[in-house]
Design a protein around this nucleic acid. Structure first.
Lengths: 306, 306
DNA sequence: GCGCTGTAATCAAATTTTTCCATAATAGAT
DNA sequence: ATCTATTATGGAAAAATTTGATTACAGCGC
């Protein structure tokens, strides 16, 4: 006797079996299911072959379950309930959603967005585990390849197969010591070119947007200091005449008592949230994306500078 | 959007889904299942409709599961395992078999068989719950109607739709006080007819077999005492000249110091175990029937009498 | 960037499974 | 024993699955 392959059985078979069990009659089950009686017999035959047991025997006006049938009925119930739950539209309750999320971003987003996000998720959805990876220059590739679920990036572009949502605007400003030569005057283009600059060199060779400003084309900035991260920027340049050009929100966040001044060019940019089709339909991820959008919409707008 | 009816889904669909998940490729899944690729696409389409989610999205050479897909895969695993177990041939382990059994019989079987059976089941299969009901004269009817699972009866007959197995033979003997007038001699037919008899009157009007002996045809026994049960028989007749005709095994069991003598006729009978098709295929019931058969085969054969 | 390659999606036809209708067999019930 | 209600069976119709051929798509190498 070869092993029976249960693949062929459908949930309808189980449902039918249970109905026969409950009603004690094939005919009644047929009526209930809006089918006719031979159909029920046919299904029952399949189950009999599958389970190697008559399952029901004629008895009085109808059928009575066999011992085996009694035995398996609770299991069948479980399977039916399991399937029913499986097809429930994904119901998402932040407070007990269990989820792993990987978010790719760089220093800027880690500083500006991530703290609020972590705080909020920790409060509203404590069972969501977050992992942050660095985007470097290939965030969209990471996302396309499923290495992360979300990308926070200042690059606004229509990547193929990615969804996006703009979060907020920012622009570059100049950060310098209050004692800086240029502290008391608007910074002209010549001043800017002549100044001693600090740069952050990102892995992968990414260059900040402001370098693409028309006013800086063909100009080699005088880079007096190159750092791998903004983390120790302020103490490093606080008492120097070095000048750092960086996003305004970041400048305000870490700048302390340093001076923030308009640069001699316009370099607005937008921060964008990207995701892919893998998480697009997920209720949990939809909620998560909304949280990020909400956080960003309520970030303080930076005040204008001198 | 109307509620999806999961009935149509078969376990094959789930199996296919899991295979795509494990292999990350529809084509590979198709090969593994010995089908061709559009078939897998077709099945996936069904699941997509059912679950309202793409489940897999194209990614690199193959497909990657969506968030929802990750989420439901453990459930699908559970369902597949559940179904697989359901189709396992009923494996029966006495020590942890959980079962309800109803056995129909009368006083004789309750005295002769049931104590050993209860002891044995309590020892080997402590989770089998037994209920004993009285057969009266309609034991086979009870069995046919599913009111009991087993019938122990001395009536050997081919009832329709019932299975049977003979257990052991017995015969009727005469039980009397050692001081009885007939104590010192073989009992002749005239002695027997002249004696003062005790009878047990069973509910339903059942008459013991020995009354059908050819030697007693047309004879009205002199019934001096009629009791509803054998339970208080011995103390009642111990010091009288009453004579009780009853099955030998019962006589030996309850007779104490009373005298057992051959009656002036032959009245052998056999005890039989009956069951119906509802329990015929059940491994548990098969085992249970074997236990009863075994117990009966090892009952002491009654020694012959004077 | 542009074709190449491997993979999934789509379509119509072939096949298989399921359902239906009519009818026979069966087991209780009158 | 006959009657009635119910399940089983068989052949035809309907529906579904599977197939083979083809198209569309996404990475990858050049």
């Amino acid at each position: 006797m070869e092993k029976f392959d249960y693949s062929a059985l459908s949930f309808k078979s189980l449902k039918t079996l249970k109905l026969i069990y409950d009603l004690g009659s094939l005919t009644a089950a047929a009526i209930e299911l809006g089918q006719n009686q031979p159909t029920i017999s046919y299904t029952l035959d399949q189950m009999r072959a599958a389970l190697q047991d008559p399952l029901f025997v004629r008895s009085g006006r109808g059928v009575a379950p066999t011992s085996r049938c009694h035995q398996i009925m609770p299991e069948i119930d479980k399977l039916l309930r399991g399937m029913s739950e499986l097809l429930q539209p994904e119901e998402f309750e932040p407070s007990n959603a269990n989820l792993d999320v990987t978010i790719s971003c760089n220093q800027y987003e880690l500083q500006i967005i991530v703290p609020s996000l972590v705080e909020r998720l920790n409060r509203l959805a404590p069972n969501i585990r977050m992992a942050f990876i660095q985007s470097h220059v290939s965030g969209h590739r990471q996302l396309q390849r499923g290495l992360c679920d979300l990308l926070l990036s200042p690059v606004v572009r229509d990547y193929e197969a990615l969804y996006q949502r703009r979060l907020f605007k920012d622009r570059y400003v100049c950060l310098m010591s209050a004692a800086h030569t240029l502290a008391k005057q608007p910074i002209g283009l010549d001043d800017y070119r002549a100044a001693k600059h600090v740069e952050i060199h990102y892995e992968g060779g990414w260059k900040p947007f402001y370098l693409s400003a028309p006013e800086l084309q063909g100009v080699n900035l005088n880079v007096a200091l190159s750092l791998p991260s903004v983390s120790n920027l302020i103490p490093t340049i606080a008492s120097t005449d070095l000048l750092m050009t960086l996003p305004e929100r970041l400048a305000r966040l870490i700048g302390g008592s340093m001076l923030i001044k308009d640069p001699p060019f316009i370099s607005d940019f937008e921060l964008c949230l990207y995701w892919n089709k893998m998480t697009h339909h997920s209720k949990a991820h939809q909620w998560l994306r909304e949280q990020i959008i909400d956080i960003c919409s309520t970030l303080d707008s930076p005040r204008s500078t001198t």
